[in-house]
């Protein structure tokens, strides 16, 4: 895509860059030990987060995991309330009670966020059941990962959602890691497509980190799930860059190694949604948008 962008595409691109910018700001704060709580950054998760947020209608709901930063940023109108929440301030989005790993935003559809792996999938089933019982024409997206899907509740919830025909999308962010273990280091491969076939669920896999492609395909899935009143599974292959949340310097992927002064990009490959975005936009248009995002006031 190198033609002039339509307004909705420009918004998608803007949102990817804004989330990236905010993550850099948070990372700079982390480098100065500004936050009392651990933060799980999501460099690399921006495209799928923007796609999900873009598809959501006012009645739709989202249930997140401990690594919720990209989604919370995608749904938020401003960084400051989240920044304050990360600092446990009463002015925070959750009045300083939720911190990072449980951060929700009910007014923007994020109704539940679990710091416990796998807890959110069954809660999302309940949310979708409530939606169905109340006759709300919407859907629920539950974000999980290649680590959380190892929990038994993931499989139970797939069966429960299908058995009761719930309007629910299971979004598996597959970043290959559970803490510091890769999939081959901790378990056998799981073919999610085959799993879905076994319980008769639609499945698609998002690859390439192209926000325009992801947004179109996720919107299609919303329509499918709402129309059929039946669940579906979307797997998104993502690379989580500089993901380390702990205080151990020198850990591979240590966020101390990146600096916002070097630009928003964190990796010059299609593993970085910003790189993919840049490749799909005219250079001048990208630069203008990037400058606009960097110039946006966020306070503090």
């Amino acid at each position: 895509m190198t033609t002039t962008m339509a307004e909705n595409e420009r918004k998608l691109a803007h949102d990817v860059l804004r989330i990236r910018h905010w993550q850099h700001l948070v990372n700079e704060g982390l480098k100065k030990n500004a936050f009392p709580v651990p933060l799980h950054k999501a460099f690399g998760h921006e495209a799928v987060a923007v796609a999900v947020s873009n598809a959501m209608q006012p009645q739709d709901q989202l249930a997140l995991t401990h690594r919720n930063m990209a989604y919370n940023f995608a749904r938020a109108g401003a960084l400051q309330p989240i920044w304050d929440e990360y600092k446990n301030k009463p002015t925070g989005l959750g009045q300083g009670c939720l911190g990072s790993m449980n951060l929700a935003n009910v007014g923007r559809g994020i109704v539940y966020t679990s710091s416990i792996l796998g807890n959110n999938v069954s809660v999302a089933c309940g949310l979708a059941m409530a939606m169905k019982m109340r006759g709300v024409e919407g859907f629920v997206t539950v974000v999980t990962g290649d680590g959380a899907m190892e929990e038994g509740s993931f499989y139970e919830s797939l069966v429960f959602a299908k058995s009761h025909q719930l309007p629910l999308v299971f979004l598996v962010e597959n970043n290959n890691f559970s803490m510091s273990s890769t999939i081959p280091e901790r378990r056998c491969p799981i073919a999610i497509a085959h799993l879905c076939q076994a319980v008769d669920l639609p499945y698609c896999c998002l690859t390439g980190n192209n926000v325009f492609d992801y947004a179109a395909r996720f919107a299609d899935y919303r329509e499918l799930v709402v129309k059929r009143q039946s669940p579906a599974v979307v797997e998104a292959l993502v690379t989580n860059h500089y993901r380390h949340a702990g205080p151990t310097p020198g850990f591979p992927g240590d966020p101390m190694n990146i600096d916002m002064k070097n630009g928003l990009l964190v990796k010059a490959s299609d593993e970085d949604p910003v790189f993919v975005l840049q490749a799909n936009m005219k250079a001048a248009e990208f630069q203008e948008l990037e400058s606009q995002v960097l110039a946006e006031k966020w306070s503090d």
């Binding site: 709901q61 109704v111 539940y112 807890n119 999938v121 069954s122 809660v123 999302a124 089933c125 309940g126 949310l127 979708a128 059941m129 409530a130 939606m131 019982m133 109340r134 038994g152 509740s153 139970e156 919830s157 069966v159 429960f160 058995s163 009761h164």
Partner: peptide
């Protein structure tokens, strides 16, 4: 609603319905 055997999930479902106003 008659359900299958999945107690952990059934507890989460109850809290989900609570959040959904049911």
């Amino acid at each position: 609603v008659n359900t299958g055997n999945c107690e952990n999930t059934l507890c989460g479902v109850g809290f989900g319905m609570m959040l959904g106003g049911v």
